[in-house]
C-alpha cells in the first residue's frame, strides 16, 4: 500500500508533560480544569494514568501538550517510569494544606533527576489555595526550593480555577524556549520528540498490511 505519511494540516510542536504528586493533592482536578474547564469535588482516584491533550498557541506557535495524569499511590511507581522517562516536562503537585505532600514532591524531584530527561522542565503547583483562609499564603520555603531546582512555583486552585492557565503556559513557554535554543533548533515540520498530531478527528489511513 502506498501510504505516505499525511502532512499535518497545521505544523504543530508536541510536548509530553507528566503530572506527579501524592494521592488526592488534586492532580486530576488540575488537569480537568485546564483541559475542560470543569471542577468536581467528587473525583475518583486515578488508577495508573490518564491521558489528555491540550492545544495552545504560545508566541504564535501552535503547541500540543500530551498530558499524563498519573496515580498518586506508591504501588503504581514500579510501572511509573514509562510515564516520565521521556517526558519533556513534569508538573509536580502538592496540597498547600498538607506539608507531607510537599515532601513527596521533593522525593519525586530526586527520582526525576536520576531517571528522567536531564533537561526536563519542572514546575510546582501549590494546589488547593482556596482552602487557605488568610490572604497571605506562605510559600517561601516552597519557592526557594523551587528556585534551587530550577523550577517555577505557582499557587493554584483547581476549584477556584486560579493559577492553572499560568502554570501550564509557563511550562509551554519554557519548553518552546528550550527547543529553540537546543542544537536542533526549532523545526516545526520535524519535531525531534513526541508525535506528529494530525487532528482530533481520525483521518489517517490504516497502516499498511504488507508485512504478514
Amino acid at each position: 500500500m502506498g501510504s505516505k505519511p499525511p502532512p499535518p494540516p497545521q505544523p504543530s510542536v508536541s510536548f509530553k508533560l507528566v503530572l506527579l504528586g501524592d494521592g488526592r493533592v488534586g492532580k486530576t482536578s488540575l488537569v480537568l480544569r485546564y483541559v475542560n474547564d470543569v471542577f468536581s469535588d467528587k473525583q475518583e482516584a486515578t488508577v495508573q494514568a490518564s491521558y489528555l491533550t491540550k492545544r495552545l498557541v504560545v508566541e504564535g506557535v501552535p503547541i500540543m501538550l500530551s498530558i499524563w495524569d498519573t496515580a498518586g499511590q506508591e504501588k503504581f511507581h514500579a510501572l511509573g517510569p514509562i510515564y516520565y522517562r521521556d517526558a519533556d516536562a513534569a508538573l509536580l503537585v502538592y496540597d498547600i494544606t498538607d506539608n507531607d505532600t510537599f515532601l513527596r514532591v521533593t522525593k519525586w524531584v530526586k527520582e526525576l533527576k536520576q531517571m528522567a530527561n536531564k533537561d526536563i522542565v519542572m514546575a510546582i503547583a501549590a494546589n488547593k489555595s482556596d482552602l487557605v483562609r488568610s490572604k497571605h499564603i506562605d510559600t517561601n520555603e516552597a519557592a526557594s526550593y523551587a528556585e534551587s531546582i530550577g523550577a517555577t512555583l505557582f499557587v493554584t486552585s483547581a476549584k477556584a480555577g486560579t493559577g492553572i492557565d499560568d502554570i501550564f503556559s509557563d511550562i509551554a513557554k519554557r519548553l518552546l524556549e528550550k527547543r529553540k535554543n537546543s542544537s536542533d533548533g526549532l523545526s516545526l515540520a520535524h519535531p525531534k520528540k513526541g508525535i506528529l498530531i494530525v487532528d482530533d478527528e481520525p483521518e489517517k489511513e490504516p497502516p499498511p498490511k504488507c508485512c504478514s
Binding site: Y51, L52, S66, I195, I197, E201, E203, K204, P206
Partner: peptide, 13 residues
C-alpha cells in the same frame, strides 16, 4: 483502525 495514538488512547480510556 483509523485512529492514531491520541485518538485511540482517548477512546479506550
Amino acid at each position: 483502525l483509523v485512529g492514531d495514538f491520541t485518538s485511540n488512547l482517548k477512546l479506550l480510556q
